[in-house]
Simulated scan of single mutants.
Amino acid sequence: MNTEHLTDVPREREPNEANVRALVEAFYRRVDDDPLLGPIFSRALIGRWDEHLAKMTTFWSSLVLGSKQYRGNVQEAHRPIDDIEPRHFARWLSLFLNMVESRYEPAAAVQFMEPALRIAQSLQLSRFGWDYQIPAEQQALLAALKRQRTGDAPEPRFPERPDAEPFPAKFIGKSADEK
């Protein structure tokens, strides 16, 4: 898969079927190219990438657009993948949230970000046990997004970050570049 630069796509004011599909396709190109996540996804999806992209487009359209077409169990879909560690969740979230932020205006981005963080939290607790401590940065970002959605914040208050730093700030563990 080819890597697409995040800045090559204008930011959308609101999600629709076409830009959700484009988001999913671009995101999973990044995942496939990622040195940490790529091998896990390649093993899990060997010969099934097209099916996965279609399913993820339906999944995100159901969540964000309310299409209610997705039929599946997120927990069961991830259960067979044995080698997932906390750093994989951190990397997935970082890539996804960065991609969403680059493609959507803040009010639209929240529609993706909040469910992504909630689903990640659910998967993390299911995978690592109910006593697993969700990273503080992940909890803070979810709280900020909830405030944005409920109108408790006049505008999005995403964490400050230097130019070119991945969004959000490092959640936990080592980055894909560290050993």
Rank of each mutant, 00 (worst) to 15 (best):
S61T: 05
L53I: 05
V24R: 01
A116T: 05
P162T: 11
S42N: 05
M56Y: 02
D8I: 06
G38D: 10
F128L: 09
P80L: 13
F167T: 02
V24G: 03
F167W: 06
D32Q: 11
G47I: 07
P135W: 10
H78D: 07
Q133P: 07
K146P: 00
E25R: 04
P15L: 07
R13Q: 12
E76M: 11
E114C: 06
R149H: 09
L95G: 07
R127G: 15
A120Y: 04
P10L: 11
H52R: 09
A18E: 10
V31R: 08
D177H: 08
W92Y: 10
L142M: 15
N73A: 06
V110T: 15
R118G: 04
W130T: 14
S94W: 02
I119P: 03
A176Y: 02
E178K: 12
E160L: 15
A109P: 08
N73H: 12
V20I: 14
I172M: 11
I84T: 00
K174M: 07
D32T: 08
F41W: 14
P135K: 12
Y132P: 05
E51G: 07
F89I: 03
F171H: 08
V74F: 10
M113Y: 01
N2F: 13
L93Y: 00
P162L: 13
H88Q: 13
V64N: 02
I46F: 06
A26F: 01
P86G: 08
G38I: 08
A18H: 06
R79G: 04
A153D: 15
I40Q: 07
E25W: 04
R29D: 12
Q111C: 06
S94K: 04
F41C: 01
D163G: 07
A140D: 15
P168N: 11
T57I: 02
Q124N: 08
S62P: 01
A44C: 03
A144T: 12
P35D: 06
M56E: 14
A107N: 11
S102E: 13
Q69T: 13
A153C: 02
L65P: 03
